[in-house]
Amino acid sequence: MYSVVVEHIYLLVIVTLISVLQNAFFALKVEKEGNCQNIPTSGFERVCCANRNCMDSYPTFLAVMWCAGLCLNQAPAAFAGIIYLVARQKYFIGYMGQTSQSTPGYQFGKRILFFLFLMCIVGIFNYLLVYYYGSDYKEYVETITSASSALLLIP
């Protein structure tokens, strides 16, 4: 039984652990920028703000990624999770320069969160169809989400 459960979540676990490492990287950047000078600089304020913004959206990301992976299919959810982490890295690095450089990463991240949210809704809707009507469209929906997850790479 244990291997069956792990088989359905291991990709989500890997993406979650990578996101934890990314959070540690962000925290180290904030600490490094804070230790450089005793007087808070604009660079320190930008790094702190970027870190805070990333932390504000982190619970939402984890919730929709895990729900999408459990309700529908872990492979496209994990793929979207990796792409979201790349977008979040782009946002963080862009925010350290000028705030206008962070806008593409922010918008890309929003689109990925929306895709994960739609996966959750479709998975729940499919479950309700199975429960009340006996119609299971999970294979078709998994095929569509797997194919459409590649569209996330288009900026």
Rank of each mutant, 00 (worst) to 15 (best):
I144C: 08
S148T: 15
L118A: 14
V122Q: 04
F114D: 04
L118I: 12
F125A: 15
V141N: 04
T143I: 11
G105D: 03
E139V: 11
P104S: 04
K138P: 00
I124V: 15
Y131F: 14
I121Q: 02
Y137P: 00
G105K: 00
V130E: 10
L118M: 14
Y132D: 05
G134H: 01
N126Y: 04
C120F: 10
F115D: 01
G109I: 02
F114M: 10
Y140C: 07
L113I: 10
E142V: 10
D136Q: 01
S100I: 14
Y140G: 13
M119V: 03
K138T: 15
M119H: 01
S148R: 02
T145V: 15
F114C: 09
T103H: 10
Q101K: 09
F114L: 15
I144Y: 11
R111N: 11
E139R: 02
S146R: 05
Y106F: 15
T143W: 07
E139D: 13
Y132W: 12
F117G: 13
F117T: 15
Y131L: 14
K110I: 10
L129K: 01
T143D: 07
S135E: 11
E139G: 04
C120H: 02
L128I: 13
I121E: 05
G109D: 04
V130Q: 12
Y131R: 06
G105C: 04
T99M: 08
Y131C: 11
G105F: 05
Y106P: 00
S149P: 01
K138R: 14
V141A: 14
K110M: 14
F125Y: 11
V122K: 00
Y140M: 10
F117L: 15
F125G: 05
L128F: 15
T103P: 00
G123P: 00
I144G: 05
G123Q: 03
Y140W: 07
T143M: 11
F114A: 13
M119F: 08
D136M: 03
F108C: 07
V122L: 09
S146D: 10
K138Q: 12
Y132M: 07
G109C: 05
P104F: 06
G105Q: 02
T145P: 00
E142C: 15
V141R: 00
G134S: 02
P104L: 07
F117Q: 05
F114N: 06
L113R: 01
D136F: 02
I112E: 03
S100E: 14
V130W: 10
Y127I: 06
S135C: 08
Y131M: 09
G123T: 01
Q101A: 13
L128T: 08
T103A: 11
L118R: 03
S146N: 15
